[in-house]
Amino acid sequence: MSRTLKQKLFEPPSIRQMAPGTKIIVYSILLLWTLFVLFPIYWVFITSFKTAVDVNAGPVFLPFIDFQPSLHAWKELFVFDYKDTLKAYSNSLIIALSSTIASVLIGSMAAYALARFEYKPKFGVILMFVIMMIIVFFAVGRYGVDWRLSCAVGVAIFVFLARALGHHFTKHLSNGDILFWMISQRILAPIVVVVPIYLMFQQVRLLDTHLAIILTYTVVNLPIVIWLMYDFFRSIPYDLEESAQLDGATRLGVFWDIVLPLSRTGLAATTLLVMILAWNEYLLALFLSTSKAQTMPILVAAMNAGERGILWWSMSVVIIVMIIPVIVLAIVLQRYISKGLLLGAVKG
């Protein structure tokens, strides 16, 4: 090392002090990766302005030089087929927004509860609940008992037994266990639960409605919200909340007036993350929507099935329309997201 101790101490290393060779290697790797990241997006973008001829005759790369950009694919989708596109787009918007609001709200409340109150659910009661649930399922599935009746009776018996026997159990779980239980729901692959959820919504005639998808997305994203928000809430001093209580606020009021505004950074990151996940989700929507509640990913995936093969130009338009708002959000808020994600990752 040729740098003197003084240099090392007082001049933080900067690009000028990196060996020229290293510099070239670093920049070429980064630029190469930039190319790798941007090229597919660029390709989708220019394909959306191509005509069938431009696509099928082999690759053309540069608009106005290689080929004459045309708006026909855009027109087709937004002028002729605008109803389908707009429908899917508005479905996606409604579903992503509602489910995000719901899961951020419900998840934050649960995370706050776990950060502030002490819970001691009895192990025995939980076991009783699981046994009762299995009995209910057997009654419905095997013996064909009406599901409403079965559930109602099951819940009634459970509540009765829990009240009567609950205090006999001594072993109980802690907040940490509840937190782990909630967060670990994310491990659950959606395919495991989607068929029963499908059947459930079929029974209550909610298939292919916004509500069904919103509810499902809300639950799927709850673990992320709880996981990310828990630490934010723990870092808020008790004093503030107690002070607000004495000022006359209810617990919900404290949560709304004091706790949520103080966790703005975390909320922003969490909201954005959950919204993007909901916006892009495919598998659950595939099961739960058929036509009326179809979301954008389903619309895009369905374009595969054309008779003339894939209409790349139309496909590209839809993809562009779908990713533009997300990319804009991502660029504007990427610092928030990385901070939020880091916070979650650090505490594990």
């Binding site: 001093p237 004093d239 002070s243 004495l246 006359g248 007036d257 004091i258």
Partner: peptide
């Protein structure tokens, strides 16, 4: 009774001012 219904006001050591 709940704190909010006791008609008391408290000053905390940390002051507990709402930072936002």
């Amino acid at each position: 009774e709940l704190p909010k219904n006791r008609d008391v006001a408290m000053v905390f050591q940390s002051y507990a001012l709402y930072p936002h």
